[in-house]
Amino acid sequence: MSAAQKQVVIDRTGQLFGCFVLLSLFIVAAKDPATFVGQTTIGITNGALLALIALGYTMVYGIIELINFAHADVFMMGSMLGMQLIVSMGVSAQSGVFAKGAIIVVGLVICMVACALINVAIEKIAYKPLRNAPPLAPLITAIGMSFILANLAQKIWGPSQVSVPDLIGNGSIAGVRIKDIVVIMVTAPLLVGLTWFVTNTRQGKAMRATAQDQGAAAIMGIDVNRTISLTFLLGGLLAGASGVLYALVNTTTVWNAGFKNGLFAFTAAVLGGIGNLRGAVIGALLIGLIQAYSAAYVGDRWTDVVIFSILVMVLVFRPTGLLGEQEITRA
């Protein structure tokens, strides 16, 4: 059997499996529609939060082929800074709607900028000097940066869970939690904005060109270093937003919050095809939904097993991911 035939068999099996999963979901949905709708919105919310992180992984990988393990901890920093800001400003669950809304908006902006700066600084300090080193060197440095950020957070905010004032509350509109609505209202414009930026602006084009061929991009007169910084900046902005939303939705955060969410987001990026922006979003939504459905229908303790089994299966059977492009370079 040729490689192409093998891939067809694998794809068909995958599709069959997908159909089976959809069918089972359809059955459970028919049995109890309310639970299903509830789990679906939770899944989309989780997926949206993961998408914001996954994009940072995938963009950085796309441009310098580095798995930036510290990215998850930038997200965690976002959640911690958001929490700190809310607490320092004295806003609590009892505050007025206006104060709560204002702190959410201001907090998002401040934490996004702060995380963007942290991410850019990490690149400048830790990765840029290793630009021409063997790929293992920056990878290990990334893991090191991850530890540094996590331990810094542990030093500052302590080793246990830190609670975040519940500013959004548990209300719902037409059966959808307000928390889910807030997350979607923040995430959707960010995703649209990023897509627009990358496809239409001069700097966005420079990013795509640099990702495809760094040497050729330099010849075009593109400042490759600045373009890489910009990539980290954008990734940091999104991770910051995700961190604040995470803190608000879960009303708690912790110094190692980046670890598991980072792994999930990374899995999402790989699932969608690492380097592919649309893939990262779709992968993240899938992971979010799988997380929510398996928590409701399989059992909470199986969630991680399910998700990481999917990661392994993707890596084995379709290493380029669901939307990963085949190499189309030709001599």
């Binding site: 001069r202 795509r208 060109a209 495809q212 061929d213 050729a216 991009a217 075009m220 007169g221 030709r330």
Partner: peptide, 22 residues
């Protein structure tokens, strides 16, 4: 450059636009 080094995932038009980047 040697080996042509066109941007493989961009269209011909986009490649030409990249040439005018500066």
């Amino acid at each position: 450059p040697e080996g042509r080094r066109v941007f493989p995932k961009m269209t011909v038009l986009e490649n030409l636009e990249m040439g005018a980047f500066q």
